[in-house]
Amino acid sequence: MRKSINELQDEVINEFAIFEDWMDKYEYLIDLGKELPLIDEAKKSEDRLIHGCQSRVWVDAQISDGMLVFTADSEAIITKGIISLLIRILSNQTPENIVKSELYFIGKIGLQEHLSPTRANGLTGMINRLKSEALKQLTP
């Protein structure tokens, strides 16, 4: 049984709850970045680039058996960790579920100063892109 978006968010919240020290949290985030399903080098094109981030981030979306599958990459290690978290939660879900998802994990993993959607980390841009890729599948 595939885990739901909220189950995955709760999983992430529990994982981060183990760490008290910010350094450990960042080290974990960086490790998560290493697990990111990487986008094909050939797909690192201008149209797959998310604007508004201090480091460049590319995202690709492919539909497979009704599920949307994301791959991505970034030049910055922390950004890679952030996009990796988002993809872990939103990839392999139906476009409907991605569009209507509410991402509450961000405020609950103790990195809110950094993952607040107003910062230069481009979090807003990343979430918008993932959701708009899902929305594209729903609009003929």
């Binding site: 960042y26 480091s55 910055a76 290690i77 922390i78 950004t79 950094h114 980390n121």
Partner: peptide, 13 residues
Amino acid sequence: DLHPFDVGTLLDQ
């Protein structure tokens, strides 16, 4: 080859 964003983020911490 560290990205400035990564360095700045950890300094801010």
